[in-house]
Every structure is written in C-alpha cells, then in structure tokens.
Amino acid sequence: YEMRFVPQDGQEDVDKPLSSWRTLENYSYDKYHSMTEIYQWMYQIGERYTDMVTQHFLGMTYESRPMYYLKISQPSSNPKKSIWMDCGIHAREWIAPAFCQWFVKEILQNYQHDSRMSRLLNSLDFYVLPVLNIDGYIYSWTTDRLWRKSRSPHDNGTCFGSDLNRNFNASWCSIGASKNCQDLTFCGTGPMSEPETKAVASFLESQKENIVCFLTIHSYGQYILLPYGYTSNKPSNYEELIQVGQKAANALKAKHGTNYRVGSSADILYSSSGSSRDWARDIGIPFSYTFELRDNGTYGFVLPETQIQPTCEETMEAVLSILDDVYTKYCLSN
C-alpha cells in the first residue's frame, strides 16, 4: 500500500540536515545527505513527479523508523517487468545511497527526451530503496562513521547490530559469517531475524514473478559480483550473468577508465553466506548483481564527495547496460 510521509521538524533530534534546501532543483547530488534529508528528498520526488513516482511503505527498522521505497512507473496498460535496486545495506558505504538518489534523478530528468531511458521506462518498472539500513546509516552520521551493521541489541544489550547482508535465508551463517555479535559479519539470531531483512524479503517474495533484475549497491573494491558467495557452485545462467556483467563493466570503463572485475563473490572476492544477492537468485530472480563501487582501497568507505559525481556517472553506464540486456531479453518480444 501507498503512504505519504511528511517529515516533521525535530522528529529526529540527532539527524538534522547539515544544509538547508527547499526544492529539488537545489538538491546536491554530489554531496552526502543525512537520513532526514533523504526522507525529505523522497517525499519531494513523489510530489514533483506525481505521474511517475509513488512512495511506498516497506516496513519498520529495529529502532522504529519507517522504510520507504520509490516506485518509478510510467503509466501503461502493457504488462511490465520490474527492477529492484537497494542501497545502503551497510551503513558506512555512503556512496551507495548517493548512487540510488543519482539513479532516480537521472531517470526522472531524462526519460522524456532520452530515447534509451524512454524505451526502458516504457517496459520496466523500478523499485528503489535508497537506504536499507536506516538505523545504521544514522548511527554512522552521529557516532561512528565506520559502522556497518544494523542497530538491534544482542547479548542482553551488551552488543549491537547484525550484518544485514549475512541475514538472508541463503545458506544462512554457513560460511563467511559469524554467530558472535561482536563481529562485523554477525549473521543475526536466525535467517531473516532482522526487521529490515524481513521487510525487503517479504516485498521481493510478493513481487518475484515480475522482478527480473535485482541490484544491490555497495562499496568498495571495483567489482560487479554475481551469485554465489556461499558456494563455488554456479547459478544455472552463470555464463549469461558473466556476459551481461562484463558488458556492464566495459560500459563503466568507457566513462572514466575505471576497471571493474566481474565474477562470483566466491571466485573473485570472498565467500559469504546469507547475502541478499544470493537469496534473490535462489528465489528465482534471474539477474542478480552486487556492485562494489569505485574506490580501490585508497579511501575505502570514506570516499570524498569529489568522487561522488564520477562514481555515479560510471555506475549509471553500467546499470543502464544491464537494463538494456534485461530489456532485450524480457521486453523486446512484447
């Protein structure tokens, strides 16, 4: 169901905006934004593009903050396939929410006169979750810039946070994850034990017949990762995933020269269980990718704001390349 959320002054005492902006035209997409600003941005996007964008309630975080996603959909009587994109599952990876906002901005500013985007919008709906781990994101702004996990308490309140990208029901906590809450990869108390994970998983389950592409945006490392992380076995469409991913990496490189590697997480990065990417593929979403954005280790999670624009520009090229292939496979015949 659809909800409208109007942020109230003082609602988040610890999360006031650093800068004042009144209209979308003044919004800086080359800056990092607090959660309050992102809430306001989502609301304004929905108000500005009433014919294309609706804001929907997804669930509540552990600390009782509402999670919203944006649905970008061009009115049409044709049946359409859908794309899911989430950002900010790991709190400290600030470039990810910046990219989700950039992506929405680019789509909405260009779909009317850019034939490529127009074609995609004619046949595909987009679900965009700009910040998945809202509690953690706010904590990374207020207290610990390098916080990664959610903020749920464990061990009688002596230990906080689950790694939401180890909490999905995909060979949960079998490899590359920890059952110790002190660890960065704490997988939670059970598969889907965290409210944020449950909210995302419930929605994707309900929409899985229509969703053909799942994209989750992370940093850093310059990777386009495909399933799996929990096994060295390959998904049935592995060759296709590699081909589409490599084409995306080529498009990305053509923009600013950044070299991304493409492969399964277990092959080119490390093994990990319980990731959303692996879970999405296991429930039948054919194209499932993790982007590890631009930095090569120079800045790590603390990517300077001067890097936001080139990062988003090149990532946009890669995402559009994947969407072109999704369109060709699922929409062209219609």
Partner: peptide
C-alpha cells in the same frame, strides 16, 4: 553538532590493509 562525524575510527580504518569487509 549532533551530526558531527566521528573521526577517530576513520583514522584507525586507514591503517587497515585492503581488502576490508565489503
């Protein structure tokens, strides 16, 4: 400011070799 970023962990992070947990 309530939103002031905590700088100490940033400095500590820079001492950790790549790759970290992504």
């Amino acid at each position: 400011s309530a939103e002031k970023v905590a700088f100490l962990p940033v400095l500590l992070f820079l001492l950790v070799p790549f790759p970290a947990l992504l």
